[in-house]
């Protein structure tokens, strides 16, 4: 009985020390990480919508309005989460008011992308995402499905998911 009590105390001590160390590191690193995420989002918004100078959050982490120098609304940016091969593919899309896409960016694996490395993960590559620029909703179809966009070799599911996700997002947000 006494022995069991001693064991429990020892385990408790280790846990307390470990929790203390983690709390310390967490407090130090968390502001840096948060700050980085904010900066990342800002630069992502800028790169999907190069003409915009200011973004206004309409729905936290989902929908933004984009404004130009004269502060007039020129388009929107939104996040879509189409289902890929391994899970949702977080896609940030910028689109002008006339319905033409200005650019898309796909989140990285550390931000939760679960596509297969070397295959589905290639949806992040520039040649793939660049295909969407200046496209309208009607143009969003893979060559396989009778459209104009190239799919990634051996990763049709992921390619198609992104195309659908962007198209659905346009449908939903651009009214």
């Amino acid at each position: 009985m006494k022995n069991a009590f001693k064991l429990a105390i020892k385990l408790l001590i280790i846990c307390v020390i470990s929790a203390g160390a983690l709390a310390l590191v967490y407090n130090k690193t968390q502001p840096v990480i948060e700050e980085m995420k904010r900066k990342k989002l800002k630069s992502n918004l800028r790169s999907v919508f190069k003409n915009a100078v200011r973004f206004e959050t309409i729905k936290e982490d989902t929908l933004w309005h984009a404004f130009d120098e004269s502060d007039s609304l020129i388009g929107i940016a939104f996040k879509a989460y189409p289902r890929g091969y391994g899970g949702p593919i977080e896609t940030l899309v910028g689109v002008k008011l006339d319905g033409k896409i200005t650019g898309i960016i796909i989140a990285s694996p550390s931000e939760g992308l679960k596509e297969t490395p070397g295959l589905g993960l290639k949806v992040r590559e520039k040649w793939f995402t660049d295909q969407f620029v200046e496209k309208k909703k009607e143009d969003l179809l893979l060559k396989k499905d009778g459209g104009t966009l190239d799919a990634i070799t051996a990763a049709t599911i992921s390619s198609r998911a992104v195309v659908r996700g962007v198209a659905d997002g346009l449908e939903r947000y651009l009214k």
Binding site: I14, S18, A21, L22, V25, T29, Q30, V32, I33, M36
Partner: peptide, 18 residues
């Protein structure tokens, strides 16, 4: 296990931040 997971988490946070 506690010692190891503590270091892994420290490593995870530090990498993520710096």
């Amino acid at each position: 296990i506690i010692v190891i997971s503590t270091f892994v988490t420290i490593n995870d946070y530090t990498m993520q931040a710096y």
